[in-house]
């Protein structure tokens, strides 16, 4: 299972909920961090599944 016992859902690798807990503090806008985190998550996740389904 994933670190932090959060199941890796479709489109994710290291879920935002896991990463979120790792910040000591967030002084600014959390939504920006989440958005950019998930943007790359989807692409990297696609790498794993593309090897299975495409390559």
């Amino acid at each position: 299972m994933a670190e932090g016992k959060v199941k890796v859902k479709p489109g994710e690798l290291i879920p935002w909920e896991v990463r979120e807990k790792e910040y000591e503090k967030i002084l600014g806008d959390k939504a920006i961090l989440k958005q950019e985190w998930e943007k790359i998550e989807v692409i990297a996740n696609r790498f794993i599944w593309a090897i299975l389904t495409d390559f």
């Binding site: 299972m1 994933a2 199941k7 890796v8 479709p10 690798l13 794993i48 599944w49 299975l52």
Partner: peptide, 16 residues
Amino acid sequence: IDSPTEYLANIWMPRI
């Protein structure tokens, strides 16, 4: 079944 993506990355990919 437990976690398909992790299974692929951790177990299947090193085999293929």
